[in-house]
């Protein structure tokens, strides 16, 4: 875990009407699944696992929420970028 102490994260805003709901969380989880290490979604002081829909739902992100997407392992950077693009596109809804 050579990169574990190196924080790699990006901020994003939830723009779609329904917020980070079950369908959109499922889309994030689908991308995060390909990461080799952990992918986190952070909102305020809460940090949840981006590979778990249930965990993401517990954040209760409504439209306009600011979130941070964070990875633990640098080679997962592509996963990070894809998630940010997905969130910013309003999950293609």
């Amino acid at each position: 875990m050579a990169y574990s102490d190196k924080d790699i994260s990006k901020d994003a805003v939830i723009v779609n009407e329904l917020g980070l709901h079950a369908r959109s969380a499922a889309k994030i989880a689908e991308i995060a699944r390909h990461a080799k290490s952990n992918v986190w979604i952070i909102k305020g002081s809460e940090k949840v696992d981006a590979k778990s829909i249930i965990d993401m739902l517990t954040l209760g992100c409504t439209k306009g929420s600011n979130i941070t997407i964070k990875i633990d392992y640098q080679p997962d950077i592509e996963v990070l970028d894809r998630i940010v693009r997905l969130v910013e596109s309003g999950f293609g809804e």
Binding site: E30, S52, I53, I54
Partner: peptide
């Protein structure tokens, strides 16, 4: 759509 979400939930880590 709801059932598809249920399908993914089945294997959810949590």
């Amino acid at each position: 759509n709801i059932l598809e979400t249920h399908l993914i939930l089945l294997k959810d880590k949590m």
